Simulated assay, not measured.
Amino acid sequence: MGAEAEELPHGAAVVADGFGLKGPRGWAFREVSFRAEPGALVAIEGPSGSGRTCLLLALTGRMKAKEGTAEIGGLALPRKMAAVRRISALGQVPGVSELDSAFTVAEHLNERALLQRRYDGSVRTLLRRPAERRAISRARIDEAVAAAGLDLAALPKGGRTSVRDLERLEALRLSIALALIGRPRLLAVDDTDLKLSDADRAEAWALLRAVADSGTTVLAVCSEAPEGALRITTLDGAAEPGTSSSAADGSTTAEGVGKTAPGDPEDAKNAKGAEDPEGPEGAEGSEDSEDSEDSEAAKNAEDPKSSGPAATRAGSPADGDVTGDSTEDTTEEGAADALAETGRA
């Protein structure tokens, strides 16, 4: 059985069919269909406000889709959201898993390794001697830092460099290193090419390709997809309903693309309380009851800044409290719910 487990690919296959997410203000994205093999580099391309981040969070189990189906590593969404969160990790996503500017690079790395050991380790691991546990954590940190291409010696103060003093590319490398400490099967990164020069953008994509080549499936939000990546295009909200565009890059072709339509005329009617087969948007049956419960949960969620960066980054202990069969629309500190309410990310 151990030999069979070793033969399985480390990365998670990602399959979406008519995938869509709708918030109170309309569709964040819809009709997203594609298939990515384990270890693929998937670029979610589109303008800001076209639903890119919402799609990224939905595919990693942080937001609950309203239509269509998706499978991550054979785990069906939205029924297996908690299980998907356990095999996926987020790089830096604004409002969801941000770096703490008051922390140093070493503090971030040590904290993530500590949380990983505490919440993802086996009982046998917890019973090991402290020195042995520290050695295991140090090995994980070194492995993740090397995979992210983060050269601590090149930083102004080494590991004691504050996050606020990092360049954009260095901060991106740090967020990826933190995500890789948990050895995820799926890595998700938002705003990959934001505020990067052409040279830095090339380095960022080379890094993500290297991570994908090592076996980890990578989802990356960007404004312009690089050559060789599986490109998934989210259309602008102004696109007419029913329209779509082909997303092919070289020999890599997506089976379909998503469209975002928060400005859909039908959604506008519902928002105004016009007659609808399902009733007004604010008075739908069980579905809106569920949305109101999710909204209330988001309001009661703990403020990410109140407990440091541990509460907001991917793979945090908050994810582990939900069973694999849960259908609850849980998100990381409620930030994803805020994105869903806007319908534009």
Results as ranks from 00 to 15, higher is better:
Ala154Pro: 10
Ala154Thr: 12
Ala154Gln: 13
Ala154Cys: 13
Leu155Ala: 11
Pro156Cys: 10
Lys157His: 13
Lys157Cys: 01
Lys157Gln: 06
Gly159Val: 14
Arg160Gln: 09
Arg160His: 12
Thr161Phe: 03
Thr161His: 05
Thr161Glu: 02
Thr161Ser: 06
Ser162Gln: 06
Ser162Ile: 12
Ser162His: 15
Val163Met: 04
Val163Ser: 07
Arg164Lys: 05
Arg164Pro: 08
Asp165Phe: 08
Leu166Phe: 02
Leu166Glu: 15
Glu167Met: 07
Glu167Val: 14
Glu167Gly: 11
Arg168Ala: 07
Arg168Tyr: 10
Arg168Trp: 06
Leu169Ile: 08
Glu170Gln: 13
Glu170Ile: 09
Glu170Phe: 11
Glu170His: 11
Arg173Pro: 05
Arg173Lys: 15
Leu174Lys: 03
Leu174Phe: 08
Leu174Cys: 01
Leu174Gly: 05
Ser175Gln: 10
Ser175Ile: 10
Ser175Ala: 08
Ile176Asn: 04
Ile176Thr: 10
Ala177Gln: 01
Ala177Asp: 02
Ala177Pro: 05
Ala177Gly: 03
Leu178Gly: 00
Leu178Ile: 07
Leu178Thr: 04
Ala179Ile: 11
Ala179Ser: 08
Leu180Asn: 03
Leu180Phe: 09
Leu180Ala: 07
Leu180Thr: 01
Leu180Lys: 01
Ile181Lys: 00
Ile181Ser: 00
Ile181Trp: 05
Gly182Ser: 13
Gly182Val: 01
Arg183Ser: 12
Pro184Gly: 06
Arg185Val: 13
Arg185Ile: 11
Arg185Thr: 04
Arg185His: 05
Arg185Gly: 10
Leu187Ala: 14
Leu187Arg: 00
Ala188Arg: 09
Ala188Pro: 15
Val189Lys: 00
Val189Pro: 00
Val189Asn: 00
Asp190Pro: 12
Asp190Lys: 14
Asp190Met: 02
Asp191Ala: 04
Leu194Pro: 01
Lys195Val: 13
Leu196Trp: 15
Leu196Lys: 14
Ser197Gln: 01
Ser197Pro: 05
Ser197Ala: 09
Ser197Lys: 04
Ser197Asn: 15
Asp200Gln: 12
Asp200Lys: 01
Arg201Val: 09
Arg201Leu: 10
Arg201Phe: 15
Ala202Phe: 04
Ala202Cys: 04
Ala202His: 04
Ala202Gln: 14
Glu203Tyr: 12
Ala204Ile: 05
Ala204Val: 12
Ala204Glu: 10
Trp205Asp: 03
Ala206Phe: 03
Ala206Asn: 13
Ala206Ile: 02
Ala206Lys: 05
Leu207Gln: 14
Leu207Met: 09
Leu207Arg: 14
Leu208Trp: 08
Arg209His: 03
Arg209Gln: 12
Arg209Asn: 05
Ala210Gly: 13
Ala210Phe: 04
Ala210Asp: 14
Ala210Ser: 11
Ala210Cys: 08
Ala210Arg: 10
Val211Met: 00
Val211Ile: 02
Ala212Met: 09
Ala212Trp: 04
Asp213Asn: 08
Asp213Thr: 14
Asp213Val: 11
Asp213Ala: 01
Asp213Phe: 12
Ser214Glu: 12
Ser214Tyr: 07
Gly215Val: 02
Thr217Gly: 10
Val218Phe: 11
Val218Gly: 00
Val218Gln: 06
Val218His: 09
Val218Leu: 15
Val218Asn: 02
Leu219Trp: 05
Ala220Val: 15
Ala220Asn: 07
Ala220Arg: 03
Ala220Ser: 09
